[in-house]
């Protein structure tokens, strides 16, 4: 470990990541339950936690393989769920230009919604600070995900659904949007993105998310142009 590692930034990354991980715990348990019910070998099912590392896509591929869907169709559906990562990759690209090569190869593997939401707020930090923060938060998410999805294989069936803990994800993302809004075109992008997703909610394969995100980005860009 680099002796000049800034411990306060490591701590910040960990402290920011933990509350964002809490709502992923019931989700991890659901994945464990779905793996068990799918008829896949539990170990093979669990490998998706580090091979894919993305809950929604894991849930999609495992439940479709378990239901006997054609393999190519199952793979396609799971990839569609992750198409939004293309947008994260583009948005993070400027920050990663200032990173060493190893970080540009390792960093993308850790990208999930929660890490993107935290990291994009730090995109203008010093490159070393950004890297320390990104890896600290990212490794917290990664490590806890491996553990909780494994635990989920055993305790998946016993989580009370009535708590609706998964709603906490929406609350936390709202908080992250609020922290990231420094001018009104970003507010427009968020509101239009949410509204368009609502209107497009009926599209298959979570297509509404992509339509909504695209329209939101467009609206923010137009608002920015009008402001200039």
């Amino acid at each position: 470990m680099n002796s000049s590692l800034d411990r306060s930034i490591v701590k910040r990354g960990i402290v920011d990541a933990l509350p964002l991980f809490v709502p992923a715990i019931p989700f991890a348990f659901v994945i464990g339950l779905v793996i068990v019910e799918s008829g896949l070998s539990p170990f093979i099912g669990w490998t998706s936690s580090w091979v894919i590392f993305g809950g929604a896509a894991q849930l999609t591929i495992i439940s479709l393989l378990g239901s006997g869907t054609a393999v190519a169709a199952a793979i396609t559906a799971a990839l569609v769920v992750n198409v939004r990562y293309l947008m994260y990759s583009a948005a993070l690209a400027p920050a990663f230009q200032r990173q060493p090569r190893w970080m540009r190869w390792l960093g993308p593997y850790l990208v999930i919604d929660q890490l993107f939401a935290l990291a994009i707020l730090r995109a203008d930090d010093e490159p070393k600070d950004f890297r320390t923060y990104y890896l600290s938060a990212g490794l917290v998410f990664w490590t806890l995900w491996q553990i909780t999805t494994a635990v989920g294989l055993v305790v998946g069936p016993v989580v009370p659904e009535a708590w609706n803990l998964e709603f906490a994800v929406s609350i936390l993302f709202l908080g992250l949007i609020v922290l990231g809004i420094d001018k009104y075109p970003k507010l427009i992008a968020a509101l239009v993105g949410a509204g368009a997703t609502y209107l497009a909610a009926g599209l298959p394969n979570r297509g509404g998310l992509l339509v909504g995100a695209f329209v939101g980005i467009l609206a923010g860009t137009v608002a920015e142009r009008l402001r200039e």
Partner: peptide, 28 residues
């Protein structure tokens, strides 16, 4: 391109908040 990229985070997260509330029948 950089101008457009700054709206990725608010737009995708805004969309995600709603998408997370969509049930299996496509209702929010």
């Amino acid at each position: 391109f950089l101008v457009v990229l700054q709206f990725v985070a608010p737009a995708v997260l805004g969309a995600l908040i709603v998408a997370l509330l969509i049930d299996s029948d496509g209702n929010v």
